[in-house]
Design a protein around this nucleic acid. Sequence first.
DNA 1: GTATCTGCAAAACATTTGCAATTCT
DNA 2: AGAATTGCAAATGTTTTGCAGATAC
Lengths: 140, 140
Amino acid sequence: MADHSITTEQLRDLLLNKGVKPSFQRLSVLRFIMEQKDHPSVDVIYQNLVHEIPTLSKTTVYNALKHLTERGIINALSIDDVQVKYDYIDGAHAHFLCTNCGRIYDIRIESNIHGMQIIDGHQVTNTQINFKGICNNCKQ
Amino acid sequence: MADHSITTEQLRDLLLNKGVKPSFQRLSVLRFIMEQKDHPSVDVIYQNLVHEIPTLSKTTVYNALKHLTERGIINALSIDDVQVKYDYIDGAHAHFLCTNCGRIYDIRIESNIHGMQIIDGHQVTNTQINFKGICNNCKQ
DNA sequence: GTATCTGCAAAACATTTGCAATTCT
DNA sequence: AGAATTGCAAATGTTTTGCAGATAC
């Protein structure tokens, strides 16, 4: 679990350590993803942040997400066929997408799926385990 | 491995057994996916089939793929963020996407990831394990 | 003859790109 | 000043939708 009350200074250090320039917009995008725990889409991130940052553009959100993903700070989830969803990388977990309500749940798994490995001679840099079906909530 | 020389009659029975009306277009789409073994996209399927079926429209391909997916005959892979790729369901395997050349490789795995199961109280109907990285071919 | 399926055209979305203005050091 | 970032508008690409005509049982 991540700390909910992470300071701006900690966020800034995290970005600097990973080689991403800590602009105000990028810090805001990362903070939102870390606090939201909801695997938000680009549009959800934009709609929420545009209140605090009225001049924000969706292009900037795309740009920030691209940098954060490339530097291994967040994960671009390809579980949803329509939109990409984003997830802060803190510990290995799989995802479950409810095809009824669209919610994405974290699923705890034992094995460590992060980190590099070679499979069939291919250099693996990212692993995702995706389950789909009907969630507990929609089942009744 | 599937039989390469599957007859139209066998295809027709397969569709009927799963509750999909075996129209000529749907048979063609399914046959292409089974023979291609290449996880083709909608566009690839359309571009190839439109030669044999000049009146074919992309809407019909989308429609056929939707029916085949819903009835559990093929798998809609969400490994690629841009396009959905399709895969005939025959035996459990994971996928590796090369982020350089875009090719998708089948990865053999031990555990049976098809079939229903309950995870964290959610009813799972589909499981996908996706690896991304640089493939053997692009590594040099 | 009625249901379903097909296919065209248009619409709807998500994402990318070009470029000028702004910001940061 | 120089380099990177931002943000607007337009372009691109994928998938969906509405609807009329064709097809199948």
